[in-house]
Amino acid sequence: MIPMEYLSIDSVLHGPFQAPSQASTADRVAHVARLARIELRPEEAAMLGHDLDRILAYVEELRAVDTDAVEPMIHAGDRGLVLRQDVERDGLGAAMATAGAPATEGGAFVVPRVIG
């Protein structure tokens, strides 16, 4: 079996990317909340920021584990992917596809206008 290395994402992909300042708890929460598209009320942001700090302090214990040369484990087992044959089948159709949607027009979903 040829090992499939899961190389560092940070060094390979993020290269020139500069992580925004996360100097303070508030900065960190604001940054990840923006990435995750979740609006937080100020008191909520304060509470979650406090929790995040505690949890991150707790998971610091992982640093003590020597993981040099340990291949990250993504799935249990090492079996290969089972594939499907290239057979087409009708889907739900537009009416069912959009049945639960908050806003639709002519079978399409509607969102606030995106410019560019």
Binding site: D10, L48, E71, M73
Partner: peptide, 28 residues
């Protein structure tokens, strides 16, 4: 929200290797 924020942080640029990838190694 708490978990989405934590998970988003663990995957975010500059922290991915130290958090998510490290956790996957410990998982092994």
């Amino acid at each position: 929200k708490r978990r989405i924020l934590l998970g988003t942080f663990a995957l975010s640029a500059g922290f991915h290797d130290a958090y998510y990838r490290k956790a996957c190694q410990v998982r092994r």
